[in-house]
Amino acid sequence: MFSAPVVVAACFALASTWAAANFLFRKTPWGAKGKHCVVTGGSAGLGLALAVLLAKEGAHVHIVARNQERLAAALRDVEAARQSPDQVFKTYSYALDSAKEAEACLDAVSAASGGRCPDALFLCAGKSRPGFWVERTEEELRECMEETYWVQAWPALAASKRMVRSGVHGKLVFTSSVLGYFSMVGYSPYSPGKFAVRGLAEALQSEFLLYGISVHIAFPGTIFSPGFAEENKVKPKITLRLEETDVGSAPAAVAAHVLRGVRNGRFHITYDFIGNVFRCSSRGSSPGNGGLVDQVYVMIGMIGLPLWRRDVDKEVRKHTEEHYDYLRSKGLVQS
């Protein structure tokens, strides 16, 4: 009988052969040059990094965010990446968790693009509010869904209507999170919206085959952005403890991975070992990325993920006494 190392080595050899063949016969990659690209949440973090990268590739870049001061600073960064005097760079201040605001935003973008709708919409707007479920109010939970799901769904609706009406074979690029594949303590206010974004992308990936519109969804892990620094200020201690060994990435590195996935026609875009294991272990019937390579990640997930979850749950249970002290300090349980 073959030993386990031999089997794993054979799997990786087959996967490498498949990947090489796929590289030789894949379709022509998508190019951003000359395309009108809208980036929501484009004033900081991943959104800003994508806007700069798109500018470097020769795209016309339209940045949407709320804060005018940050938009002005972001525009300077994008201008520094200009490749041609013909490129159009614009900023827009809209609250995209409103359908009316999203419609007005797309109207403004189209007007600045000579009446044409965008060729690609990169949906990076969003906010994380970690915490415990029993602390949340109705208002807070509704705000969390607005900041994670609706802030992407409304502009996607406005843009896709225009693409269909104009016959533009455009792109919608959603941003979920690795927490759109799984979740854990501390993320009950946040991860439902990221799961919902995934559900929307799954449905649209199928539906938009009717129109020639491509749908992509990225599942980044930790990104060292201003938003991450803010969420850590309110993140539960147990969540911070579980994330102590988490290896994050700079926004520019993640943006490069996302744009590479879009360029190569990936539906689910993951870029690191953990993301690929979770993607392959929970993708259901979603289009895969790597045939035999994906199967290797599935095998790793079958063994590794239950062990990882066992350790996480063990740490959560050890936190019980400290957690109840916290709840008493908030008046959420009787002394």
Rank of each mutant, 00 (worst) to 15 (best):
L292V: 15
T239Q: 12
T222N: 04
T148S: 08
K161Y: 06
G41N: 15
I213R: 10
V293W: 04
Y326N: 06
V247P: 00
P118C: 09
T175M: 10
T148L: 05
L157T: 07
E244Y: 10
P189L: 06
V185I: 05
F12E: 14
Q152R: 08
A73H: 06
I274N: 06
Q68M: 07
R66L: 07
Q295M: 10
R129E: 12
M1N: 00
A218I: 07
H319D: 11
L200C: 14
L242V: 04
I238A: 04
N264I: 02
M163S: 04
E202W: 05
D97R: 05
I223H: 00
Q87P: 01
C117D: 09
F182Y: 01
S281G: 13
G126V: 03
A10C: 05
G186Q: 09
G248C: 12
A250P: 00
P29I: 01
G45Q: 06
G221F: 13
H216Q: 10
F273E: 07
V39Y: 13
H268G: 07
A55P: 08
F23I: 00
A125K: 07
A255T: 06
A49G: 15
E202C: 09
T17S: 02
V333K: 00
L204Q: 11
E315W: 14
G45I: 05
A13D: 06
G180V: 08
H169N: 11
W308T: 15
D77M: 04
E243T: 10
G212T: 01
S249T: 00
G290S: 01
D97C: 03
G167N: 04
K233H: 01
V316K: 00
A255R: 12
T270G: 14
K27D: 15
A153R: 04
V312N: 12
K194A: 13
M163V: 10
I217Q: 02
A111D: 08
W18M: 14
A102G: 04
E321C: 01
H323P: 01
E146N: 04
P130N: 11
G180Q: 11
F273K: 03
A250G: 08
P226Q: 01
G34M: 09
S176L: 04
A55G: 11
G186D: 12
C124V: 15
G186Y: 08
R165E: 15
A72L: 05
V61E: 02
L204H: 06
G47P: 02
F228K: 11
K237A: 14
F132N: 03
W30P: 00
R165Q: 06
A256M: 08
L172R: 09
G47T: 11
A111H: 02
S285W: 02
I238S: 06
E147S: 03
S286F: 14
K330N: 08
L121Q: 07
V38M: 06
G45R: 05
T17N: 06
T91I: 13
L179H: 01
H36W: 13
R66K: 09
S329F: 07
V134N: 08
G291D: 08
P130Q: 09
P251A: 15
R260Y: 13
P118E: 01
D325Q: 02
W18Q: 15
H169W: 09
G221L: 14
G58S: 07
R309V: 12
